[in-house]
Nucleic acid binder design. Structure first.
Lengths: 143, 143
DNA sequence: CAAATAAAAGAGTTTATACTCTTCTACTAT
DNA sequence: ATAGTAGAAGAGTATAAACTCTTTTATTTG
């Protein structure tokens, strides 16, 4: 559905969101532990998201990654788009380049519905929405 | 969503279905041309589907691949399952191995709904369902 | 200012997927 | 029978995604 890189990105961002409620910052090491990912790999992904303005970072002691209020309102769809591009939202289900309403593949109409479903689901899921359930241990980011 | 191999498989099977209405058989060369795929690659995929009982084949002149009535009633879900396994239907959206209702990732519930949607869509789409629209040129298998 | 900490950057490796090439075997029409 | 057609099989290559390692640069605390 989404790339592995994107899965890591979402999990990391949800963790950062959880820790950002009181202006705290989290280092890569802590993030990697929390989401059970290779540390240098998630570091790279976050650098990328930082460049694209989806996460803030500070260097030096007590530095790390964090989100402001605007960041907490970003959706999972924003992350997916930044990491994987729009192929999940717009590509053809059978891999045809010119697939469209005018020149549809056999399952075009069905896929349009499914994709809309996925898109709206991801757009409705905001990074800050899961803080309390994560805090309460009702939802998990690893294993 | 599905692997490229699986996309080719579906397109090839839909083409074979279209040509199987009057007991005709189609060769790999013709299939490759019709769905615009590398010939040896689709040959291999179809060999595999043949072993799994999803498509029939005959050797020699006038031989090729074809489907019987039972085969025409198979769904796209059967093809996806044969080629990609069940990861599309059952895997976690964030890549967690132990994700379940008991130990859910943050988006578990939403993904369950989406996956059900995808699954039922693929189960409802039978190989034989597209013969007339393909014949009429309303739907496309290449480009 | 110095030391420690943490992100930034970029090159390098591994692994899986996609795709190709070649050879072999079976079948069937003439 | 034999020649032509078509599938079967398996090894081999290319490319992209996933992941790692090392070095550099910036910042902040003492």
């Amino acid at each position: 559905m989404v790339s592995k890189t994107c899965e890591y990105a979402i999990r990391a961002m949800l963790f950062i969101a959880q820790k950002s409620v009181n202006d705290a910052k989290v280092g890569v090491k802590q993030i990697a532990r929390a989401i059970d990912s290779p540390e240098p790999f998630i570091a790279k992904i976050l650098q990328d998201l930082g460049k694209k303005g989806l996460v803030l970072s500070a260097k030096g002691p007590t530095g790390g990654f964090y989100l402001d209020n605007a960041g907490l309102k970003k959706s999972l769809a924003d992350i997916v788009y930044a990491v994987d591009g729009d192929k999940l939202f717009t590509g053809c289900g059978l891999g045809l380049k010119s697939c469209s309403a005018k020149m549809p593949c056999p399952v075009h109409d069905e896929f349009v519905v499914v994709r809309k479903h996925i898109k709206s689901m991801l757009q409705n899921a905001k990074l800050g929405d899961y803080n309390t359930s994560l805090e309460l241990g009702e939802k998990y980011l690893k294993r």
